[in-house]
């Protein structure tokens, strides 16, 4: 009797989730199917399913432009995003731990400064930062896109704050017990806090990767040499003014560009499933 009731509930849950998924995913399907349409069909015929299927958009799009293909763009994006993930984990865990667990002078002011640093729109800070990086000779390298993440600049204050909130959610008796046992502060951080912060660190990795992958403005400004272009600046190459844009190729490459992030999310999300504990928190 009870199992039957459970089955019905489970079925209901699945039904709700399927319906929600379809609604949420419809616009993406529109883009997916458009990527298989000839350009002349994308805007002039309203139907979702292509009348004439074509792979041409993918073939043309993949070639990129000026002799540099999307293969290179993907590689560059992976390199930058991968480095930013490392930088974000580095800075968020160190700084987050300090703010959440350590007592020091000026803590509140420092914390406020950290949060305020993300309240200035990049549209304004771009020029000053560009000048700094230009003086360092870093323009047209990946460094201006990577180094800030190791120093808690650009998107990383978000991660530091996230880490603070998560660590503050961990019972303090853990650290105290470790300290009584003779652990140094660093050991408390390394052996107690870090292992327990896995969900937060995975969340940070997913975001750091995706946001870097998706970032357009700073990549556009700092990278000039086409062989250093990334996926998002590569997509931009299909857009010209005066309507001479290549929509088909744009859609096709947009679809390809989200596949890596989907795969990464699909892989990592299982660490966020309740009940599949990996942290030793199970009692």
């Amino acid at each position: 009797m009870r199992t039957k009731k459970r089955h019905v509930r489970l079925l209901g849950t699945h039904a709700v989730l399927i319906i929600l998924s379809v609604i949420m995913i419809y616009p993406v399907l529109w883009m997916l199917f458009s990527s298989f349409k000839p350009t002349s069909e994308i805007f002039s015929s309203p139907g979702l399913i292509p009348e004439n299927w074509t792979l041409q958009n993918y073939v043309v799009g993949w070639q990129g432009a000026g002799g540099v293909g999307f293969g290179t763009f993907f590689l560059n994006s992976f390199l930058i995003a991968g480095a930013v993930v490392v930088g974000s984990i580095f800075i968020a865990s160190l700084t987050g731990f300090a703010f959440a667990r350590l007592k020091f002078k000026l803590r509140k002011i420092m914390f406020a400064l950290m949060l305020m640093s993300i309240m200035l729109p990049i549209q304004v800070t771009l020029i000053p930062q560009y000048i700094i990086f230009h003086e360092l000779g870093w323009v047209n390298t990946f460094l201006p896109l990577i180094v800030p993440s190791f120093l808690g600049v650009s998107i990383t204050p978000f991660f530091i704050f996230l880490m603070v909130q998560f660590i503050r959610g961990l019972p303090k008796e853990l650290d105290e017990a470790a300290i009584i046992d003779g652990c140094s502060t660093f050991q408390v951080f390394w052996r107690v806090i870090l292992p327990l912060s896995k969900p937060a660190l995975i969340t940070i990795s997913i975001f750091a990767f995706y946001w870097t992958w998706d970032d357009f403005f700073s990549q556009l400004v700092y990278l000039s040499d086409p062989s250093k272009f990334t996926v998002s600046t590569g997509l931009n190459l299909f857009l010209s003014n005066a309507g001479n844009s290549q929509w088909g190729a744009l859609f096709a490459m947009s679809i390809l560009s989200i596949i890596p992030v989907i795969v990464i999310f699909l892989f990592f999300q299982k660490y966020l499933v309740k009940g599949v504990s990996t942290t030793g928190m199970k009692l």
Partner: peptide, 22 residues
């Protein structure tokens, strides 16, 4: 405090240069 600032060093460098500079 010193221990804490040890943890904060990388972030402080970013704060004093890039963040504060811009």
């Amino acid at each position: 405090s010193l221990t804490a600032y040890g943890f904060l060093t990388p972030w402080l460098i970013g704060l004093l240069t890039l963040t504060l500079g811009s």
